Amino acid sequence: MVVVFVEGVDGTGKTTLINHLIHCHPAGVAIAASPLWRYLPAVSVPEAFAAWVTTTPATTVAVSLLSAQHMRVSDLPALTTRHAIVLVDRGPRTVEASARAHLATAEPPSAQSPAITHLTAALHTAVRHLAQAHPCLSIELAADSYDEIIERLTDPDRGNARYLRYLRTFLREFQNCAVADGPARVRLAATASLTRNTAAARQAIRAAVQRGSAR
């Protein structure tokens, strides 16, 4: 039973890779964990996320994202009892970088509060404890530059100056973000083909499953 965090900023292909990995395995073997928005009390449907994130103070957004991810990680052990592979779209590094990017691009920028420092530390602890109980893998879809992802966005996103400013900051924060201890790490190029990244991810997952069986 393996937990796989799929990490990367918007436009790197996280959801597409997860869908392919699910279809590469027999039915029920690999599943996607519940999306992050389900752990945000203010968001009842995914379409409501954009309005919430653009009308809510940046500090509240950052706290909410980190709290939601902590709850999500805490729920993962229950899934591993029923499925061999649990795929998590937007892992802890991605969510932490996103929270920091929201703070940095607020007008005026918001300072990191003690609550955010505490929540970040708690999230890292939760991931470390999860990795002690279950094999965990972090697959990073890495973009080396903003130009590598901008063309993969939708037309409305490319025309949204506020979102593009956030995305540029998100990428910088992701590149600089500390990595939680515990999960094994695999770095894949976001610009590589889906076929190549799927094959590399499957190989890494098989190795993680074997490590889990040897425990």
Rank of each mutant, 00 (worst) to 15 (best):
I18V: 15
N19A: 08
N19F: 06
N19M: 06
H20V: 10
H20D: 13
L21V: 13
L21I: 10
I22F: 03
I22S: 00
I22Y: 03
H23A: 15
C24W: 10
H25A: 04
H25R: 14
H25K: 06
P26G: 13
P26D: 14
A27S: 14
G28S: 11
G28N: 06
V29Q: 08
V29G: 00
V29F: 01
A30N: 00
I31R: 12
I31A: 09
A32M: 09
A32Q: 15
A32G: 09
A32N: 02
A32I: 01
S34F: 01
P35G: 03
P35R: 04
P35M: 01
P35E: 14
L36E: 03
W37T: 13
W37C: 04
R38S: 07
Y39R: 09
Y39F: 15
P41A: 08
P41L: 09
P41M: 05
V43K: 05
V43E: 01
V43G: 02
S44H: 10
V45T: 15
P46Y: 14
P46I: 14
P46A: 12
P46V: 15
E47H: 13
A48K: 12
A48F: 12
A48D: 13
F49L: 14
A51K: 08
A51S: 11
W52R: 05
W52V: 07
W52S: 01
V53R: 03
V53G: 01
T55H: 11
T55N: 10
T56S: 06
T56V: 10
T56Q: 03
T56A: 02
T56F: 04
T56H: 00
P57Q: 02
P57A: 08
P57F: 07
T60Y: 00
A62T: 12
A62K: 11
V63Y: 00
S64Q: 09
L65W: 06
L66F: 08
L66I: 09
S67V: 00
A68D: 05
Q69F: 00
Q69C: 09
Q69P: 00
H70K: 06
M71Y: 04
M71D: 11
R72A: 04
R72K: 11
R72V: 01
V73P: 05
V73G: 02
V73Y: 07
S74V: 08
S74H: 11
S74G: 09
D75M: 09
D75T: 10
D75N: 12
L76T: 01
L76Q: 10
A78L: 14
A78H: 12
L79F: 15
L79V: 01
T81D: 14
R82M: 12
R82G: 00
R82Q: 15
H83N: 11
A84R: 08
I85R: 02
I85E: 00
I85M: 03
V86E: 04
V86Q: 06
V86C: 13
V88H: 03
V88W: 08
V88I: 09
V88P: 02
D89N: 13
D89M: 04
G91C: 08
P92L: 07
P92S: 06
T94G: 11
V95E: 06
V95H: 04
V95M: 02
E96T: 14
A97G: 09
A97V: 12
S98V: 12
S98F: 10
S98D: 09
S98H: 13
A99C: 14
A99Q: 11
R100S: 13
R100F: 15
H102I: 10
H102Y: 15
L103A: 09
L103S: 08
